[in-house]
Write a protein that binds this DNA or RNA. Sequence first.
DNA 1: CAAAAAATGATTGACGTCTATCTTTTTCAC
DNA 2: GTGAAAAAGATAGACGTCAATCATTTTTTG
Lengths: 356, 356
Amino acid sequence: MDRQTPTLSDVARRAGVSYATADRVINNRGGVAEKSVRRVRAAIEDLGYVRNVAAANLAQKRTYRFAFVIPEGPNSFFRRLRNILETARPEMLVSRVALMVESVAAFDAAALVGCLERLAEDKVDGVALVGTDDARVCAAIDALRAQGMAVLTLVADVQGARPDGYVGIDNTIAGRTAGRLLLLAHGDRGGRVLPIVGVATAHDHAERLAGMQDTLAEAGGRVTSAPLIEGRDRHDIVEAELHRRLAEDPEITAIYSAGAGNAGLVRVLARRAEGRPIVVLHELVAHSRQALETGLVDVVIDQRPEDEIQTALECLRAMADRRDLAAPAPIVPAIYLRENLPPAAEASQFGDPVHE
Amino acid sequence: MDRQTPTLSDVARRAGVSYATADRVINNRGGVAEKSVRRVRAAIEDLGYVRNVAAANLAQKRTYRFAFVIPEGPNSFFRRLRNILETARPEMLVSRVALMVESVAAFDAAALVGCLERLAEDKVDGVALVGTDDARVCAAIDALRAQGMAVLTLVADVQGARPDGYVGIDNTIAGRTAGRLLLLAHGDRGGRVLPIVGVATAHDHAERLAGMQDTLAEAGGRVTSAPLIEGRDRHDIVEAELHRRLAEDPEITAIYSAGAGNAGLVRVLARRAEGRPIVVLHELVAHSRQALETGLVDVVIDQRPEDEIQTALECLRAMADRRDLAAPAPIVPAIYLRENLPPAAEASQFGDPVHE
DNA sequence: CAAAAAATGATTGACGTCTATCTTTTTCAC
DNA sequence: GTGAAAAAGATAGACGTCAATCATTTTTTG
């Protein structure tokens, strides 16, 4: 019925060269005349040859080794990220991908660089790292790439660095999305939004904040932004500050939290006797999820780390296979209400694998 | 450093049996004493053996053949579905997956059954079909499965059938999500939502409608539901009916469209001189996207067909490989505002594949 | 034109699994 | 204990590619 897919031998025959030459071409081994290269390329085109990755991997006894470098610490988002990776690990094994998850101190550029250098020696095939803005990190990334390994930034890009790609959301878009939700929830009434960020200098939080404010402004300014709280991503600080500000400023109609430390925010809300402001926050983690379920919070904007990791893995594999992958679809923030929450991920599931 | 992954020979050696026997076990060829089966299984467990799918596929010269059965017609959602599949096809080829996209008349159970029967003869490895409720369809699905092929329902399940899985959203959840958004947009004011469905008897639209109404009711009933419009998924009917109803009932504060035919809805909105109701509708397609971008519409709830297809492909592959895949994460409806729209998909991109 | 260099050809043994065939051993019923 | 059936062992070719070696041809250079 359907004739089978062509092999490299078919290509060689069609191009009128030997298998060895065709092999030299597709594997860039060099030492091939320009004329032959062109003929092989043409034959590939004609026959629609597609390299059989399975066979190639088999011959190379290849197992992909990918490292994910994730900040450590109590931050629940990164815990979630690590969880997803751990869950994916056994499934990845089937396709011969060994996942390494490295933890480094958060915001510690030196530690991150050290980790990257170890990975460079370790000869992994690809690295995905959560970026920290720092010149040394840029240099380390360049060094890895120069060594021929694939490097992605994940969740947070590194300004100035040139990785093979960035997998994560655009924080301006995330902030604008929050702004639009706030506008929607205010209807045609006016309002006053209290923004909470980690620190105003972190470029991701700053981008979210600006995106939110721009969107409010573009809508005519009936909803305005109050002075922000810097919660340093710590729930105790967020709790204290927020408590104070809400008492101080009764005009607040909404809260937008661009960063972490939302457990403190939830505590303040839970204590309120009556009517609460509209609340929009980021990242679906245990406490934000629960707050959504109990109605303490209206909306959670999530960057869907599952998607990010899947996309990252796809990119890393494509690069390791020397395939050209169409640039991955940018990851767009997801909006969760209590009604469309994804099923809670198990902490870890050890279903016994069945081999048969 | 890391010792290499064990092969089936290692398993056989460890189990104290021949390679042939180990092979008989993992491939269920039968004719193996219970005792030996247990020993092989134990060895697999001990060594953490994972069947090398690449090698297996190579040996079998396997190309997966999967068919997607999609209703034909002008419906832009199914056009989108088909587009996604066509775009995925070349990428899938790399992993040796041949995608077939079959079109059958919409809502035509007989045509669907005919198509499934052809596929049964065609010996494809798996089928994903958009369900149509019908006893004959159930029977056809069972017949395919009895023949050992993997069958998934996609987007719409078939009531009474027992496919290997359903990949699509829960329409009740989708409707509840719409309800929550409507509540959010009404704030603490009252309102009156005008629902539009295709036909009230279609169970998917009915589920969405009920979900929306339930959510409104649970919130205390300050926002109510007006009598619905049956637009039969046709934009001309939707346009005429909606126009009439809006003129008739000035109390309408919101529109919820659970089905298709939204081009007509958008036309009505575009003609309105001033203030429009809150609008929530389903499926991100060309005109709904544009309506969102131009501010004619507030929210689009989308079932993310890209995800659905990816999940479906994953499931089909897993089943074809005789792997046990953890049940795929149910697909949750996505909420799009004009700010978080994913980049528009190219109609079709024919970037020349680079082989090297 | 000869020598050196470059390009090409020819061939081979992995890689891990599948599939098939054939032989040998064990088990079981009678 | 004999014979048949069941179970197990042994082995080999194929799948498509990679990586390496060595021989041969063509091209370039002085």
